[in-house]
């Protein structure tokens, strides 16, 4: 697909994305936002200005020229934070609130689970755990976890 982009993105010295539209006006501090961060992360990405207005819509990341895609991916990478739980090392108690020690794709950490209702069932077999400060931890496939982790998790489901 040949795509005529009517805007351009660049990175300024402050580490902010700058959007230059058709009219040639530059907008600083543009933020890419995924419309379906969990179900379809690569589809539907909007570029939002600091006032919260949409500047451009990207149907799919593949449509973009490499330079832009790299820029957006870096920006998304530095903003998005949804560690994926690879292994549950231990929990302080099976009654909530309980402190979980987990191994994620972003390293080991601990978090506090306030209640069982903070474990949300996404489309099976994915689960989304929201910890006490609102950080989301993703379990992409709960059946793919090791036996120990599954056993712990099972107590909360």
């Amino acid at each position: 697909m040949i795509n005529q982009l009517d805007y351009w993105l660049s990175l300024n010295a402050f580490g902010r994305l700058v959007f230059t539209g058709q009219d040639g006006q530059a907008q600083e501090g543009v933020v890419p936002v995924r419309a379906f961060p969990i179900t379809a992360p690569d589809q539907g990405i909007a570029l939002i200005d600091p006032q919260g207005h949409e500047l451009a819509w990207i149907d799919h990341l593949d449509e973009l020229p490499d330079v832009l895609r790299a820029l957006i991916e870096t920006e998304l990478g530095s903003r998005e934070f949804m560690p994926e739980i690879k292994c549950i090392l231990g929990v302080s108690s099976f009654a909530t609130p309980s402190t979980w020690q987990v191994k994620t794709d972003r390293g080991e950490t601990t978090f506090v689970l306030k209640g069982e209702e903070n474990i949300r069932r996404l489309t099976s077999p994915a689960l989304l755990i929201t910890e006490s400060h609102g950080i989301h931890f993703l379990i992409r496939d709960r059946f793919a976890l090791d036996y120990h982790s599954r056993k712990i998790l099972d107590r909360f489901l």
Partner: peptide, 21 residues
Amino acid sequence: SGIGSLELVDANSLLARWRYT
């Protein structure tokens, strides 16, 4: 979305950025 970022800037550019939960 759950992470804070602390930025040190001067008049010209970003000097450092730290992230924390």
